[in-house]
Design a protein around this nucleic acid. Structure first.
Lengths: 229, 229
DNA sequence: CTTGACATTTCGTATACACGAAATAACTAT
DNA sequence: ATAGTTATTTCGTGTATACGAAATGTCAAG
């Protein structure tokens, strides 16, 4: 059943498509062609063609005009890429002087080139970390993933304290801004006020007050003291 | 004059061809199509086509039926790949538990994927090494290369002491054998005897005697105490 | 000189992936 | 139901790289 997923069976493009489908279907919905085209910065026509090929290879389930989901094999590939990507990010930050706003692009290229051996060596050197520098969970070598349920800071009630756990963006300008403001995984903040209609969020971090756009607050995933997380 | 050699201007294949031409022309002779095809494990017809494209891009000089040499731009690319490759090997050995017989393939893939930034970070962490684990010199970021002239162990006179400086192969089975025998860069050996007609070489290393095939002795590049190297 | 033998190039073709334009399916609002 | 909008697919193409078969150039031996 399990197709040959070892090395070099899949092209870089295929790996990128599967990763994208993984992310787009995280909400349980099938991923549309346009969505995918947008995410991969390709023309919809190109995506349509690639979807056909990946479906033929048994990596995607495709319901024409309905979108795609990952097959078990496809998910395996996506999770392996995710593990690679996040471990590489963690390694580059820990050992090669990268900052969380600069690792993404490097990891994006390396994830297609490293061997399983190298990935596992990096994991070992890092002490088998469970999260990357953005707080994103790192899948196990077997494809297991301990996905926590966090609350976007945008949804944390006013007056509530919260601890930032994940910062869900890979855009370096945003990451730079956020780390400048101390809004990194592990930081504790208190929501002081929020404007209605997706308005900005005012929060207290340490002794400073900070106002951030709702758009950013959506990316800061938090745990609330008292909840199990 | 200097063409755009930054990132992504060149395909992986192009980089591999230029590297191969670099190695094949080390003796001063132009590299033939068949030679190149052999080195890259491709059909001569494919090489012929690629040669044309690389010549059009100003990376190779091509005299039809005569072979190719690198242009200045081509050499720049080749030396950058060489720097990448050797630094990556050095880094993997120093920090990620690789041995010199296992690094080659990994470096071969990574050299196409790492950014200049990452290469220079690795160089820095390593303290800007001048040689890789095989004793091969690492070109500078500017493309400078301090190539030493060494004597193959196969040519060292009987009775002479020599220090191994470079081990000129990337085949892991040979490398494993050689390191098992202690024949690594820095080792001091004394040639005890040699059979005629490219026969095996008997040598003394430490307190042990060792006989190695001439083929291997050709790959062990040595400096002789007393010579300037 | 001429003739093999061998190296090299040319030619037609295949695969993987991208594109735009045009055709088609699906949904939405009347 | 049906027309318009939007999403998706199909089709014809282009680029990069590989291949084998056939044509052609080169050189050494006679």
């Amino acid at each position: 059943m399990t197709a040959d997923l070892s090395r070099d069976t899949l092209t870089r493009s295929a790996e990128d498509y599967l990763k994208a489908v993984y992310h787009l279907t995280a909400d349980g919905e099938a991923a549309g062609t346009n969505q995918l085209a947008e995410a991969l910065d390709l023309a919809p026509a190109s995506v349509s063609g690639m979807i056909r090929r990946l479906a033929e290879q048994g990596l995607l389930d495709h319901a024409p005009y309905r979108g795609v989901t990952l097959t078990a094999d496809g998910r395996r590939v996506a999770l392996r890429m995710l593990r690679r990507h996040r471990l590489i990010e963690a390694y580059l930050v820990a050992h090669l002087g990268y900052t969380w706003d600069t690792v993404h692009d490097e990891a994006e290229r390396l994830e297609h080139a490293v061997s399983d051996t190298l990935v596992e060596r990096m994991a070992k050197v890092l002490g088998d970390p469970l999260e990357d520098p953005h707080g994103d969970p790192i899948p196990g070598p077997d494809g297991s993933l301990a996905e926590m349920v966090y609350v976007p800071l945008a949804d944390v009630p006013v007056g509530q304290e919260a601890e930032i756990r994940r910062v869900h963006t890979s855009q370096s300008d945003r990451l730079r801004y956020l780390s400048g403001a101390g809004l990194v995984p592990g930081a504790r903040v208190k929501v002081v006020a929020r404007e209605p209609f997706a308005g900005p969020v005012r929060l207290r971090i340490g002794k400073r007050d900070q106002v951030i756009a709702n758009e950013l607050a959506l990316m800061l995933l938090c745990s609330l003291p008292g909840s199990l997380a």
